[in-house]
Design a protein around this nucleic acid. Structure first.
Lengths: 151, 151
DNA sequence: CATAAATCTAACGTTTACGTTAAGGTTATT
DNA sequence: AATAACCTTAACGTAAACGTTAGATTTATG
């Protein structure tokens, strides 16, 4: 039976697969933006594919939403919060507390949703402007074409 | 007949109306992001409402699109390019040249449109993720509610 | 097992997008 | 016309987000 090791990745692999520099990857780890990877006996970081996925996501979101890393932290924590919540879901000891926690989480999610929606709107407006500009320009070209014969 | 002066604004007025600091306004002028305002005899900047509009737009777009100021310059130049084109539209001297110029402009617009659309997509994905998370969280709350009686 | 190639931490450097302060000139008000 | 309130340029300061370099391991390879 082959040892089913998920073949750990070195930081350079992660760098190439995520498009982020090694410095940035370590930096994000320091900030707590990504989970700390395992270490070899000698101290070398050993990543799993999961890390690449998270890094890709962070990178995309940062570019798309224009979030600062601090904002990204808040966002990333949402997933963790929900996951953590599930983790100790079975010990239903304090129902009231659990409910409050969930309400809190939903609150933060709604905040983020509003933010994202307002960004969508604004960008949509920008798109409309661009489309209008394009139209103006192409109309200009058509006018040129029409007057082509009569030189 | 009342002298129809469009009542020039001082930098502090522009600052309050645009939400940008005076420093930022001067900074953007240095970068060529906004047209240079007139100056009084003594050298004080005299703005018009138009300036406020442009500044507001820049501010919004910067936040929404996460553009750097350099990218904003490219974008802002599109408007100018189209306007300039119209300016000397009547002297149709070189039809070929005009057509090339317009093609160029449309090309840049299309670039920007692609960029904007890809941003819209990415943000939409983020939104979907948030919605999914919200659902997970609210389902959790319902489970709690259901198990409420049987303590 | 020697040596090259990659990794580690730590620290200082850089760029962007302004903030802040200084020193002096201009406008507005009394 | 004096004085406050605002404006000007110039220069240095700063926070965020990494880049770069150094010096010391560690890991991979012939």
């Amino acid at each position: 039976m082959p040892q089913e090791k998920t073949k750990s990745l070195k930081i350079d692999d992660v760098s190439r697969q995520s498009g982020l520099t090694k410095r940035t990857i370590r930096f994000y780890e320091d900030l707590g933006l990504i989970p700390k990877p395992e270490r070899s006996a000698g101290g070398t970081r050993r990543y799993r594919q999961e890390h690449v996925d998270v890094l890709r996501k962070i990178s995309q979101m940062k570019v798309a939403l224009g979030f600062t890393l601090e904002e990204m932290q808040r966002f990333m924590h949402l997933n963790d919060a929900l996951y953590d919540y599930r983790e100790d879901y079975k010990n239903l000891s304090d129902r009231k507390k659990k409910q409050d926690r969930l309400k809190e989480i939903v609150g933060v999610i709604d905040e983020q949703l509003q933010l994202v929606e307002s960004k969508l709107e604004k960008i949509h407006k920008v798109k409309l402007e661009l489309v209008a500009m394009r139209k103006r320009a192409t109309i200009g070209m058509q006018k040129l074409k029409k007057s082509e014969g009569k030189i």
